[in-house]
Amino acid sequence: MVIAQEHSPSSANTKHMIGLRAAVTVLERWKANRNQIQQVLRISRATLLRAKGEATASRLDCDQLERISIVLNMHATMRTVFENPANVYGFMGRPNDNEFFNGRVPLDLISRGSMLTLIETYRRVDSLRNGLW
């Protein structure tokens, strides 16, 4: 007999906050400032402060959770592609000549808050794994 585990709202919120904290840490390592972090993840200043502290969890909506997932997946891809930590953490802050970026800095683009730009940036980063760039 299989017993279904109950997932309380507070348990889900705790897991979401762990993901949020990880995404904030990655963005900080990419040298994103507070405003950029808020724009990329579409979170308020209060939510960002909660993520950086030990305060109680905030409720995150589906859009925010998807953004967190994309940032974490992008980071995981870069850790796979690049051996040098300077590239893992520096890639997003450097001008890029890929046709999508057209000499612009990826972090600047995703900081505008567009989900489409965030997704396309992830697609471009993910294509590095297959040598398609």
Rank of each mutant, 00 (worst) to 15 (best):
G103V: 11
Q38H: 02
H75T: 01
R129W: 03
N102S: 11
H75G: 02
M74C: 05
A12S: 06
H16F: 12
T117M: 12
R129H: 07
P95S: 06
A57Y: 02
R45K: 14
A46I: 12
V88E: 07
L27Y: 05
N130S: 11
V125P: 01
K31W: 11
S10V: 09
L20D: 03
N13S: 12
P9V: 13
M78L: 13
P106Y: 07
G113K: 00
A23K: 09
M92Q: 05
D108L: 11
F82C: 04
P95M: 02
L41R: 00
V105M: 10
M1F: 08
Q5F: 12
R29H: 09
A12H: 11
P106D: 07
G19L: 14
S10G: 01
L60V: 02
Y122K: 12
G103E: 12
R21M: 08
M74H: 00
S11I: 07
R29P: 01
P95Y: 02
I70E: 04
M1N: 09
N102T: 02
R123D: 10
P85W: 10
A32I: 03
V40L: 09
A12P: 02
A76S: 08
D97Q: 14
G131E: 09
G19T: 04
N96F: 00
T117V: 15
K15L: 14
V88Y: 03
D108H: 14
T80G: 09
V88K: 03
V2S: 12
P9G: 12
V81Q: 00
I18E: 13
A55L: 15
K52T: 11
W30L: 05
T80I: 07
M115S: 14
A57N: 10
R67L: 08
A22T: 09
I3T: 12
M74D: 02
M92L: 11
S11Y: 11
D61G: 13
F100W: 12
Q36H: 04
M92Y: 05
H75E: 14
G53S: 14
I3R: 15
V71H: 10
L116R: 09
V26D: 02
L107R: 12
I3S: 10
V125S: 03
N13G: 02
N35P: 01
Q64T: 07
I68C: 06
Q39I: 02
T77A: 13
Q39K: 15
L109V: 15
L60I: 04
D126R: 15
L128M: 14
G90V: 07
E66W: 00
N73W: 09
S58I: 03
S8I: 06
L72K: 10
R50G: 03
L49Q: 11
L60H: 01
L109P: 00
N35Y: 14
S11G: 02
V105G: 08
A55G: 13
R129Q: 13
R21N: 09
T121F: 08
A22V: 04
S8P: 10
L65W: 00
L65C: 03
N130F: 15
A76W: 00
G131D: 06
L118M: 08
L27D: 06
D108C: 08
P95N: 01
R129E: 13
M74P: 01
H16C: 08
Q38I: 09
T121H: 08
V71N: 10
E6V: 12
D126M: 09
A51T: 03
T47D: 00
V71K: 12
Q36S: 06
R29Q: 13
T56Y: 07
L107D: 06
M78P: 00
H16R: 15
S11E: 13
E66N: 02
L109A: 07
A46V: 15
